[in-house]
Design a protein around this nucleic acid. Structure first.
Length: 431
RNA sequence: GCGGGCGUCGCCAAGUGGUUAAGGCAGCGGCUUGUGGCGCCGCUAUUCGGGGGUUCGAAUCCCCUCGCUCGCCCCA
């Protein structure tokens, strides 16, 4: 019937589903603006090089998951696979880094070319929060609590927070030397996957899923043994603060995360309510990213939450939308004109008005008003239209208490009075 | 990129080689030309994701392709 289909891994979000999305997004935005975090919007398409240089050449994201194409000017372009690189680029380009602090968030589509499965799509959506210019370990804490509290506010339980420290650049370099030596000594016992990673991204071998390699790794040098005094101090401060704030976490020494740019704090929040794609939130510190990209040396930390996964585990109470406050039933040419005029007047209130445009019988229109759960109904037919008025009433099953009233189309004061009295309207919400 | 399951109306489905593709929900219209929630009646797939093949005959068998889904890898 229809051979035009959506591309694999992309989906339409219809009004019914979007109620939940919008509720979730509103709660998130609310939380963020209370913490005075500001929104930033960057293009969803960037020069390919931006991602190669920031995310790292040895990563899966860059190697096999990017939507990359040549534009008409033969430039290599990529649909963004994540948001941090773009935000960093935007700040560098706009000169927003000189001695300033930025608390930023963004929400929007990201693209990764992978096989779709539960909680994973090729076009998916992320909320990202980045604190840029902040070095204090308390900024790590604030970022983690922000992520944690957003998830709590959405009524999500069964969450697990895992943290680790990757140390600074020098710590990691020292560790890499020792680890590489060990890897080479034990090369023959590694699985294929890990062998291939040695030259590209050795740290990722740490969280291999291969059980034999896992067992072997128990005897390998540990990253935490290579952390400097300073890095360790920073790490234990963070753990102490989390304990003080009563945020439960487990330490996961194997947590290195997939992107190259992380340093010091790395964290992940997973939910057992999801399937095998259990990570809802991932984040960490990236003190080296911005100068690596050509900006001034700027410490920063951030996280990203996958909205599809969030929607999957957020409470069902968020699925409800707002029903119409007023349903305008109208029939006849003059009545229809008055109905449109009235709907424009009503748009001055914080009301949801459904103007029936079907021209079907009164009976039909009332059925529809009932179906969409309208709180009240306005009726305009020939009788009302002749007198330049409409009738308004509460749409309940009581005839005595429906507060039916006839109001002249010009009498806005009377209309307002009826609305305020009957529709639980917050007066300050008017206009 | 690799492996398993699946694809019949907007949704949920029956049908598994034989001449008209059940049913339910939703939708639309009527009973009720101006007053809803119930009820009753009627209408809604020349076609079974798409293409090709086998057959006298295909939604049913075969091939290709697209999409969905679950797992691996990886991530949000």
């Amino acid at each position: 019937m229809n051979n035009l289909k959506n591309l694999r891994g992309t989906t339409d979000l219809l009004p019914e589903q979007l109620k939940k999305w919008q509720n979730v997004e509103n709660i998130i935005k609310d939380q963020l603006s209370r913490a005075n975090v500001k929104e930033i919007r960057t293009p969803i398409i960037e020069m390919t090089e931006l991602f190669i240089r920031s995310i790292g050449e040895g990563t899966d994201v860059v190697n096999k998951e990017m939507y990359t194409f040549l534009d008409r000017g033969e430039r290599s372009c990529t649909l963004r696979p994540e948001g941090t690189a773009s935000v960093a680029r935007a700040l560098i380009n706009n000169g927003n880094l000189k001695g300033t602090f930025n608390k930023l968030w963004y929400m929007g589509p990201m693209f990764r070319y992978e096989r779709p499965q539960a909680g994973r799509q090729r076009q998916f959506h992320q909320l990202g929060v980045e604190f840029i210019g902040y070095e204090s370990p308390n900024s790590d804490i604030k970022i983690i609590t922000l992520a944690w509290d957003i998830l709590q506010k959405l009524g999500i339980s069964e969450l697990n927070l895992e943290i680790n420290s990757l140390g600074d650049r020098t710590d990691r370099e020292n560790y890499k030397i020792a680890f590489l030596k060990w890897l080479k000594d034990n090369f023959d016992d590694l699985d294929q996957d890990s062998k291939a990673r040695i030259n590209k991204n050795p740290l990722r071998i740490l969280d291999t899923k291969n059980p034999d390699t896992q067992r072997l790794l128990e005897n390998a040098p540990k990253l935490n043994q290579f952390l400097s005094e300073k890095s360790l101090e920073r790490y234990s401060f963070i753990k102490n603060q989390l304990e003080f704030l009563k945020i439960p976490f487990v330490e996961n020494l194997k947590l290195v995360r997939g992107l190259d740019y992380y340093s010091h704090t790395a964290f992940e929040i997973t939910s057992s309510a999801l399937g095998s794609q259990a990570t809802v939130c991932g984040g960490g510190r990236y003190d080296d990213l911005i100068d690596q990209m050509g900006g001034d040396k700027t410490p920063a930390i951030g996280f990203a939450i996958g909205l599809e996964r969030l929607i999957l585990i957020a409470g069902t109470s968020l699925e409800k939308g707002r029903d119409p406050d007023i349903y305008i039933v109208n029939k006849g040419q003059l009545a229809e004109s008055l109905a449109i005029a009235l709907s424009r007047i009503l748009s001055n209130f914080d009301l949801i008005t459904e103007l029936d445009l079907s021209g079907s019988s009164f009976s039909r229109q009332f059925k529809k008003a009932n179906k969409c759960n309208a709180k009240s109904v306005v009726v305009i037919g020939d009788e009302e239209a002749k007198k330049n008025e409409f009738s308004i009433k509460l749409f309940n099953n009581s005839i005595e208490n429906n507060n039916e009233l006839k109001i002249s189309i010009e009498d806005n004061a009377k209309l307002e009075e009826w609305i305020l009295k009957n529709l639980n309207l917050n007066i300050s919400a008017k206009k």
